[in-house]
Amino acid sequence: MHANPVADPAARFTGSNATGHSCAQSVPAADAAPALTLRDVTVAYHDRVVLRDVSLQLAVGRVTALLGPSGCGKSSLLQCCNRLSDLIDGCRVQGNIRVFGEDILAAACDLRRLRKRVGMIFQKANPFPLSIRRNIELPLIEHGVRDAQQRDHIMEKVLRDVGLWQEVRDRLQAPAQSLSGGQQQRLCIARALALAPDILLMDEPCSALDPIAGGRIEELIGELRGRYSIVLVTHNLFQARRVADDVALLWPMPDGSRLLEFAPRETIFSAPQHELTGLYLRGAMG
């Protein structure tokens, strides 16, 4: 099903001519198929450029934390990766974004299929105002899982994956809104997992939760590592240090934010290449 990125020379692009900061070091195995490749991505709302020439290559099965000061375009970058940016008035995306080698900015890109492969979790849990069961069933029905038994099977599996099964197994018909904030967020993650995505985009998934519920989500991200390629937008440096394999730092510049540095966690926290990175990660700036 996936286009073979190795066979596609463009997909092997490693971003070495990106923003002057070599990305090659961040790719754990250079020959592994990248899950997500961004090349010279520029995002503008009307005439205002928020992101300029961002190039990144995310390896399969790793958790990449996307850091940066507020308003530097982290969420915008995330929304380009599943073309949710299409819904935003006046949003223009230039450059090249590939999901397993497939050009997703192409006009011919099948958005339904793209959004099945690239799931998204929002800052505020947004379960539909329906029952817990229906929340997971609805996307499955939409994507053609006709067999009710199979849907039940998938539902149980994903609810177990997010550690919600024991808590809700006896009240699947209850309104999703009756769950606590943390449970709602886990339900949303389960709902995304039900579609068996390859990539999960998480936009500050813990920031609206109390520390315990947020910690539970963080644990969950750790458990999902390896099975899904995860991009995690966060403001929490400790969180990035705890769960991320790789860290990308976006920095606002007068003509739009740029990728300041992208490296494995250990490298970027212990030996940042850029002075600003060090200051930001020590909490002294940003």
Partner: peptide, 11 residues
């Protein structure tokens, strides 16, 4: 949010 959630799920 429901619009966003639905679109993100490809509904």
């Amino acid at each position: 949010e429901y619009h966003l959630a639905a679109n993100a799920l490809g509904l």
